[in-house]
């Protein structure tokens, strides 16, 4: 029989690299739906740019905030696409790992900890979001909607934005025993209003006062404003940009903390 010291030495490698093994698993799983990821990554920006950049932009020849409508809306399109994927990934894939396919329980039967499962999950999604955001950004550059030099910063902002909505939803989904319509409600009552009232197609200042709070609580508005700042320059005071960043980090970190707690609670009860 191995002694305790030998056993702990055996467990050292997974203790350090467990998060990566989980990310590796999820990347391998992604092979099964890679065509969906690639098609949607290329199809989404193309459709948005054709509809809004060429179609709707013609109706607003004067532009918004001193830039052409396409330039104004481009950061919002990228952010809303990645944040929507973030919201999706925080719901069904999390509940599925506990309820339908129970893969999280299988992983937790090995030296991998709940924290490493969450970590690997997020690392995989960082790669996925970076790919989708990178493709989207390429289209925006090609359409002349963003400058390459500073605009690339929209990619990390989009990833942070996606996590700011994904981790709170992940914390909630990991506590659910079943989906009896909660996810559909979240899509309709949280994600959709966020998309419509977060200064996506027009500045938040144009939204009626009584609806402006939606923008303030919405990670999408904060991510979009940051995106606009790195795309076509300072549109608001620096303290406000710093506030956007802080709010996104707060959502992502606090959400991540609670997501971890939910995973620990579900996996160790």
């Amino acid at each position: 029989m191995k002694n305790v010291a030998d056993i702990k030495a055996d467990a050292e490698k997974p203790r350090r690299w467990g998060w990566w093994y989980v990310a590796e698993l999820r990347l391998r799983e992604m092979r099964g739906y890679v065509s969906y990821v690639v098609t949607s990554s290329f199809g989404n920006p193309l459709m948005y740019l054709l509809a809004l950049g060429i179609g709707l932009a013609n109706l607003i020849p004067q532009g918004i905030e001193g830039v052409p409508f396409l330039v104004f809306v481009a950061p919002a399109l990228l952010m809303s696409t990645i944040l929507t994927v973030g919201a999706e990934e925080g719901m069904y894939p999390v509940l599925s790992g506990f309820k339908w396919h129970k893969v999280f329980f299988a992983i937790h039967a090995t030296p991998i900890t709940p924290g490493q499962i969450v970590g690997g999950f997020l690392v995989h999604l960082t790669i996925r979001f970076a790919f989708t955001a990178g493709v989207f950004f390429g289209f925006l550059v090609a359409f002349g909607a963003v400058p390459f030099a500073s605009g690339w910063l929209m990619i990390p902002i989009a990833i942070l934005g996606a996590f700011s909505i994904l981790t709170p939803l992940g914390a909630y989904a990991a506590r659910l025993e079943d989906d009896t319509g909660q996810f559909a409600l979240i899509q309709r009552l949280v994600v959709m209003p966020m998309f419509l009232f977060s200064g996506t197609f027009f500045p938040l200042s144009d939204v009626p006062d009584w609806l402006e709070w939606v923008g303030w609580v919405s990670p999408l508005w904060h991510a979009t404003q940051l995106g606009r700042t790195v795309s076509y320059g300072a549109i608001e005071p620096i303290w406000l940009s710093a506030t956007h960043l802080l709010i996104l980090v707060a959502y992502a970190v606090i959400g991540g903390y609670f997501m971890h707690r939910s995973f620990v609670a579900r996996l160790t009860r």
Binding site: H101, V103, F105
Partner: peptide, 30 residues
């Protein structure tokens, strides 16, 4: 279990175990 306390040395213990759960939790994506 194997000379360790599962509440504090869970990962080390699990590194030495094989587990066949009651319900299959194979990865259907793979």
């Amino acid at each position: 279990v194997l000379g360790m306390d599962p509440n504090t040395d869970g990962p080390a213990i699990r590194s030495q175990l094989g587990v066949v759960p009651q319900e299959d939790n194979l990865d259907q994506e793979l």
